[in-house]
């Protein structure tokens, strides 16, 4: 099911929170809404869920105006909230409210709980689950609904490092199995790249870039978007340039800068040299067997031309609509 926002404006009082000329979330795709805190990501998700109404414009879910019919949307909030009672009763509630027969509900609960690894917790009081268990249960509840549009707000928050790593591996498979079109919110670039097929980059309530992730990632429209995507932004004589994450290497090359070394961190398989170049703090990976600089030393680092982009006119590159032809 496709979801579309057209000419949507949303404010709290006089403060404009979201201003979206047009964005489409395509059927069957997993779109990550990314951007810094306060950029309007969660508000956009709430608009899609019908929990907020736009002050102007339209939100269309499957070509019908919002609020969506109850069976169209599943939503996992960032904080796992449960009613009193067992986890089974909590998973059952949404299915019951959607009018599913008992046998179908039991099957769906079993499948989603198994897939999310919470089947052994079904008889436990939901409000007494640990942080990681509660997040898995939260996801199981949303996925058990098998809604055409699944909305996930920071699905990997609340996990410890190991749980997060596991969930990052499991989630794409879970979404393929249980979810249709998926929109997820994250402020973590790596999470977004790992989980999503498309990216929508929000900044101060406006869409700065939208499209298939490779396209958005390789063509950031402005320095702020590029910076959020992990690019190193440097001021040069020719203006602002952005260097792709991980592009810098030791030695001379197409785009060369002098780095004043601040610290050298031994990460066993590689050495990270952190320093300052053109007023920016950057980190460059050195091979562990290379001769390493010391703090305070100047070293030459470079990036290939193909991984350096220029921002001569950042404002004109702001993107307000998502291409309707996703790249597979």
């Amino acid at each position: 099911m496709e979801a579309l926002l057209k000419n949507v404006k949303f404010s709290y009082g006089d403060e404009l929170i979201l201003d979206v000329p047009e964005v489409c979330f395509f059927e069957g795709r997993v779109t990550a809404l990314v951007g810094p805190n306060g950029s309007g990501k969660s508000t956009l998700l709430r608009l899609l869920a019908g929990l907020e109404s736009p002050h102007s414009g339209h939100v269309l879910i499957g070509r019908r105006p919002s609020p969506p019919a109850r069976e169209y949307v599943a939503y996992a909030f960032q904080e796992a909230v449960f009613l009193s009672g067992s986890l089974h009763a909590n998973l059952d509630l949404g299915l019951r409210l959607r009018g599913l027969p008992s046998s179908e509900r039991g099957l769906r609960i079993e499948e989603a709980a198994n897939a999310c690894g919470v089947d052994h917790l079904l008889d436990r009081p939901a409000n007494r689950l640990s942080g990681g268990e509660a997040q898995r249960a939260n996801l199981a509840r949303a996925l058990s609904l098998r809604a055409p549009l699944t909305l996930l707000d920071e699905p990997l928050s609340g996990f410890d490092e190991e749980g997060r790593r596991q969930m990052l591996e499991e989630l794409p498979g879970l979404l393929r199995r249980f979810a249709g079109t998926t929109v997820l919110v994250t402020h973590d670039r790596n999470e977004a790249l790992h989980l999503a097929t498309d990216l929508v980059l929000l900044h101060r309530g406006r869409i700065r870039a939208a499209g298939p992730k490779r396209e958005v990632f390789s063509n950031p429209s402005d320095p702020e978007s590029a910076s959020f995507l992990g690019y190193t932004i440097l001021q040069t004589e020719d203006g602002l340039v952005g260097i792709s994450p991980g592009a810098f290497q030791a030695g001379t090359g197409d785009f060369t800068v002098s780095l004043e070394v601040e610290e050298v961190i031994d990460l066993v398989d590689r050495v990270e040299v952190v320093g300052w170049a053109a007023g920016q703090r950057i980190a460059v990976n050195f091979p562990p067997d290379s001769s390493l600089p010391s703090a305070g030393e100047q070293v030459i680092v470079s990036a290939p031309t193909g991984m350096v982009m220029s921002f001569t006119d950042p404002v004109s590159k702001t993107v307000d609509s998502l291409s309707r032809a996703p790249v597979a």
Binding site: Y75, E79, V81, L83, G94
Partner: peptide
């Protein structure tokens, strides 16, 4: 009650009266 509870009930599919009843139960 958790502040998100009415939102949760709404997205699970509860109508206005069902939401009031479930909140009262909580």
């Amino acid at each position: 009650l958790p502040t998100r509870l009415p939102d949760l009930l709404a997205v699970l599919g509860a109508g206005r009266l069902q939401t009031l009843w479930l909140l009262a139960r909580e």
